[in-house]
Amino acid sequence: MRGGVGARYAILIVLAVMVLLPFAGIILAALHSPGAQISGLSIPGRWSWENFTLAWERGNFSNLMLSSVLIAVCVVPLTLVLATLAAYGLTIVKVWGNRTLSTGFVLGLTLPVELVVVALYFNLREVGLTDSYLGIVLAEAALFMPFGVYWMQAHFSGVPSALVEAARIDGARDLVVLVRVLLPISWPAITTLSVLYFMWSWNQFLLVLVMMQDPDRRTAPSGLGLFVGQYATDIPLLAAASLIVIAPIVLVYLTFQRSFVNGITQGAIKG
């Protein structure tokens, strides 16, 4: 028994080192003097924080971070509401054709953005939604919907049917059942889905690069791609820019870590 527990901890420690070591390398690289030549994990002789200021100014991250936040703040609640309503209708209300629609959403999980981005660009251009935040928000919401519906369906399918039937016997309508009965016990699943949506929206690169032609209105990851092309030889500056881009994701995960883990664990137990 003790040997098995020790082996588990050893595997977890190895996996943690594999995940954290690259982050440690990026942090150490960002703290070197601007323009310094770096090889491997080297501790800087002089801790320099000016790389973050230089990267922020040269990369125009004031506008890029604002665009990323604006898009994510619109995408997350919009997609969350639509996915929850769709999953409720397919799983609890069981609307006509629910099995066919569920299969369609599952197939949507296999649809990569690279396959549809060109056609999506021409379709949205016809209605004037290219080079606009609204077009990106709607496109991301559509791309994220299949997973959200699948996730919430899996959660609602684990809710005891007696709970829903009792609410209906008391005279509660469908919307009341969803809002007052199901949502209060669904916060772990909803929080986990919200964090995932935020991460995916924040990290979206190709879609924004194609849909948004104005460099000042692109998101932080797409701006980082252009930044890499301009300062490919300045490793400390690139490391600082990378940390600026990933910082919001880390903060969001740390803030909702407990609920995120609970939602993942709850889904694993039900599965």
Rank of each mutant, 00 (worst) to 15 (best):
V93E: 15
L107T: 07
S132A: 13
P215S: 09
A172L: 11
P236C: 07
P236N: 03
Y231T: 00
I38Y: 09
A268P: 06
D214L: 05
N203Q: 10
A36S: 14
E165L: 10
I185S: 12
Y231I: 00
I190F: 03
A268W: 05
A141W: 03
L209S: 13
P22S: 06
V5C: 00
G3N: 13
A141Y: 07
M211H: 02
M1Y: 08
P184Q: 08
G104C: 12
Q266K: 11
V81G: 07
F144V: 08
V14Y: 10
W96S: 13
L90A: 07
C74W: 10
F227Q: 02
V118P: 07
L196F: 14
L254E: 04
G263L: 08
V149N: 01
A139Y: 10
G271H: 03
E140K: 09
E140S: 11
N60G: 13
F23S: 08
D170I: 05
G40R: 04
V69C: 00
N123F: 12
M212H: 02
R173S: 14
A29Y: 09
A232H: 10
S67K: 08
S48L: 01
L109W: 09
F144Q: 15
L129N: 09
S201K: 01
F256C: 13
I136A: 15
I92E: 10
I264P: 05
V195A: 04
G108F: 14
V177R: 04
I169Q: 07
L31K: 00
G263T: 05
V164R: 00
N51L: 03
L78S: 12
R218L: 09
A36G: 08
I43R: 02
N262A: 15
N51H: 06
A36C: 03
A36K: 02
V113G: 07
V149K: 00
A30C: 06
Y121R: 11
G89H: 08
A7V: 01
W200C: 01
T255F: 15
I11Y: 15
W200I: 03
M145S: 12
T265H: 05
F205K: 00
A30L: 01
V117R: 07
Y88Q: 05
V250R: 01
A55Y: 05
V118G: 05
L143P: 01
L196W: 12
G267Y: 02
S48F: 13
Q204E: 15
A247Y: 10
P160F: 12
D170L: 06
L124Y: 15
L206D: 07
P112A: 10
S102L: 13
T265G: 03
L134E: 13
W202I: 00
V208R: 00
V179T: 13
Y133G: 14
T84R: 02
A141Q: 03
L138K: 07
V106T: 12
L109K: 03
